[in-house]
Write a protein that binds this DNA or RNA. Structure first.
Lengths: 333, 333
DNA sequence: CTGAAAGCGCTAACAA
DNA sequence: TTGTTAGCGCTTTCAG
């Protein structure tokens, strides 16, 4: 069923039909005629043909590193809520942590197919930058800061600083750190710097053998905690870059009779569901992931309306959720 | 840059260019000419115009109830892996648990835009069935069985039966159940039936006041556990329909000095990450969510090649993961 | 194997 | 307000 056939059935011209679907001039009787015919035939215009004319796809490309990560999923949740309300649909690309697929996806999106792109970024290479510069459609980056581009990010440094300070103020004197790769400027570099600054600002020593770099999962946290806690000097608190790492570390402690928080305090960033269910419950920084997704979508919508080429950085602050792993007796929620 | 301009630059005809991108007859010298021009210009054909001609979008619609649910995310992960390898992209619709949006999305997909649909279903209404019947593109349903349609689902009944039996065989005599709405034929009805059958088959009494219906989250599990454990007769094991519910119940127990598993055993279905981090760790049934996503994608790909109209049901079995909450001393992984 | 030409289903400029 | 008409960028006959 195409527009001509349908127009014949409805008893109007093709243009009238087109106008009906595009908010053009139309008298009420024609409108009624068309509505009746739609009810009868179920006709709906081909979005492909439409796009090929006016170059509007009503599609937004979303590139993510790993869907089955809680934080990613929350961001996409927020994006889909806002964009859905504006009649946009999401073209989702899951790179499965393969950095090079971000490039190929961006290139795929560059030529056509989407009106805009939201990129949940982890690590930027020079290639990323050059491809991003060539994009013809607006792009919003989530989770990282990149000068000259629209970004929505979190206060990684601040959260790490606040959490570490909290543990020191509660009496910790030998703070340790389990982080992730410094190539990740947000979760890796900024959180590490926040930790280090807090240690220094409180006049404590920064022991290099109290710094570990883990992968993003529990097993790796477990392993690094073992390494950290097997030396002759034992730390009395650990700040972990992610909840999974912290949970792995807590499991190691439990297995080895090290009491949390009595012998060692542990906390991290992310506020994943796991941290509420664990025992002890986990002190963590809540990042407003869903909100950042919503705000990124709003930023993109703005660009779609009138793109002024000015890069905007929006940084969302964190909430500290104090729970048992740093000594709060009991205050879940 | 359109095909005509590009053809001029490459020094070939438009048809040659079209053939290059569509595996038509083409001499090697022309092919080379075109490849050089692509390297220079970065030209790529407009997928919209292409679609409007040959009606192939290379897009698959994926409808999900809630992205930020671990099981959903794992299924989509599997889908995207398989479909991505075949050059398909995902058009993702997040219904946010709004059942009616499944209908509108299906209708949106019905007319055009996608080559096929994968539906992560929860509850089927008669409207669902009638819309599904009218679809012109192939549809694969994940997580539910629906006669006459292609489905990939899990053995909900079997997992509930096995888990309940396990607790009874370990000595439980007063089994209780916290489930979810029976409108959900898989997570609601089948798991409840599996529980009930196991209780009966072991010659135990099925007490109606030992049956609770919760929402899908921890708080609700907590609340229902309280109700269950406040009566004058106390159950000695609880089978929960989901991990979140079980974790909520475990938290209630911890808060009230009820020991798990000594006083009461608890287990559930889902094998979410939380169950590994909790204390005690949670006995659960692992459903192969990612695999079911992959298999659904393969089924759809098959339909896309030659649709024979025969409904196929693929049911994946579960793995029982025994952990501390039902009395295993210590054997995480 | 190749190019010219017709046409996919739709939108938009135009004259009425 | 309306219908006619000329495209959008591409694919696909159809001769050659």
């Amino acid at each position: 069923m195409n527009i001509s056939e349908f127009a014949k059935i409805a008893g109007v011209s093709r243009s009238a039909v087109s106008r009906y679907f595009n908010d053009g001039y139309l008298s009420d009787d024609k409108r009624e005629l068309i509505e009746k015919a739609i009810a009868k035939t179920g006709y709906s215009p081909s979005s492909a043909a439409r796009t090929s004319k006016n170059r509007i796809t009503k599609l937004v490309g979303v590139i993510i590193p790993k869907l089955s990560s809680e934080s990613c999923a929350r961001v996409v949740d927020g994006i889909s809520e806002v964009l859905g309300n504006e009649g946009y649909e999401l073209l989702l690309v899951n790179t499965a942590n393969d950095n090079s697929r971000e490039i190929t996806s961006l290139e795929l999106f560059r030529s056509n197919r989407v009106d805009g792109v939201i990129l949940l970024a982890t690590i930027f290479t020079p290639l990323h930058i050059s491809v991003l510069k060539k994009m013809r459609v607006p792009v919003v980056i989530v989770g990282q800061e990149l000068n000259g581009f629209d970004c929505v990010c979190h206060n990684d440094y601040g959260a790490a600083y606040a959490l570490t300070s909290k543990m020191i103020e509660k009496g910790a004197e030998k703070p340790a750190f389990i982080g992730v790769t410094l190539s990740d400027a947000a979760a890796g570099k900024a959180r590490r710097e926040g930790f280090e600054a807090a240690v220094k600002d409180h006049g404590l020593e920064l022991r290099t053998n109290f710094i570990e770099t883990a992968k993003f999962d529990m097993d790796s946290g477990h392993e690094k905690a073992k390494h950290l806690l097997s030396g002759n000097v034992r730390p009395d608190c650990i700040f972990c870059a992610t909840d999974s790492i912290a949970l792995g570390a807590m499991i190691y402690c439990r297995e080895n009779g090290i009491r949390v928080p009595e012998d060692i305090m542990i906390c991290s960033v992310g506020d994943s569901k796991m941290g509420r269910a664990s025992s002890p419950t986990l002190t963590t920084a809540h990042f407003h992931y869903k909100t950042s997704g919503m705000n990124a979508a709003e930023m993109l919508l703005r660009d779609l309306k009138h793109r002024d080429g000015i890069g905007r950085l929006l940084r969302l602050d964190y909430d500290i959720i104090e729970r048992e792993s740093t000594g709060i007796v009991k205050s879940d929620d």
